[in-house]
Design a protein around this nucleic acid. Structure first.
Lengths: 123, 123
DNA sequence: TATACTGTGTTAGTTAAATAGAACACTAAT
DNA sequence: ATTAGTGTTCTATTTAACTAACACAGTATA
C-alpha cells in the first residue's frame, strides 16, 4: 500500500486518503473493476479510524470514481482511470501555478524561477 | 489590503492570515517597525472574527515576526523582512517540490514537466 | 436448511480544534 | 472621568477524527 498520511498536513485525513487513491487509480495501481483494500485494512495500514477511511470511500463513490457493495467491498468504476488522471493533473497544475505566483509577486524573475525548477528537477 | 481568504482551502483562516502577512512583509508592503492594520480592521476587511485575526497575530508574535503593544497595535519587528523572505521561499519551494513529485510518480517525464512549467510561466 | 463465522461497510456517541459572537481590558487623548 | 481605538478572553457552534457497536453478504458446517 503506497498511501501515506502526513500528520502535519492541514488537509484532513479523509481528504488525503481520497487524493491518494485517486492518484493510485490514475497511475494504474488499481485497475477498473478491481477491488480496493477493505476499509479496515486501510485503516490498520494507516493507523487511522475505519470511519475516516469509510468517509473517503463514500465521497469517492459520490464522485463516481468507485462503487460500493455493502458487505463485499469497494471497486474501481469503469472510466475512473481517465477521470483520475484529469483530476490529478488539474490539481497539481493549479497548485504549482499558485506557488509560482507567490514567487513572482515576491520579486523573483523568470531566470531565478527557472533555476529553482532546474535545481529541483535534478535532485 | 492585499490579503484574501480562500474559503475552500484546507488551511485554517488564521494560518492563511499568517502566511499572507509573512508574504507582505517579505515583499516590503509592511516595513520594519511599521504598525499593522488593527485586529478589527483586518477582521472587517476579511469578513472574519477578530478572534481569528488575533490568533494569527499572536502566533506571528511568538515567531518573532511582529510585536504587540496591547491597546495600541501590532508592529513589524526588526529583521522581519529577511526572516519572512526566507520563510516564504522555503515554503513555496517545498510545496512546488511536492507537486512535482506527484507529476513524476504519475509518469510525466522531465520534458513534459518542463513544458508545463514553460506554459505556466508564459501566461 | 439452519446456524454460526468471517469479512465487509455503516452508524452513534465522544473529544479536540477552528471559528464565531459577545463581552472584557488596556492605552492615549481630551 | 469619558471616549475612541486597540488587543484579549469567555462561551457556544461546527467539523474532523476516534471508540465502540451495529448491520449486511457470503461461506462453511452441523
Amino acid at each position: 500500500m503506497k498511501l501515506r498520511i502526513d500528520d502535519t498536513s492541514p488537509i484532513p485525513i479523509y481528504g488525503q486518503i481520497k487524493n491518494g487513491i485517486i492518484q493510485m487509480i490514475a497511475l494504474g495501481d488499481f485497475k477498473e473493476n478491481e477491488k480496493l483494500p477493505s476499509v479496515r485494512d486501510v485503516a490498520v495500514a494507516l493507523k487511522v479510524n475505519p470511519n475516516t477511511v469509510s468517509r473517503a470511500f463514500t465521497e469517492l463513490s459520490i464522485e463516481k470514481i468507485i462503487y460500493t457493495k455493502r458487505g463485499i467491498g469497494n471497486f474501481v468504476k469503469n472510466g475512473a482511470e481517465d477521470l483520475c488522471k484529469k483530476k490529478v493533473y488539474k490539481r497539481v497544475l493549479s497548485n504549482i501555478d499558485q506557488e509560482l505566483d507567490i514567487l513572482k509577486k515576491a520579486g523573483f524573475d523568470k531566470k531565478a524561477i527557472e533555476k529553482i525548477i532546474n535545481d529541483m528537477r535534478s535532485k
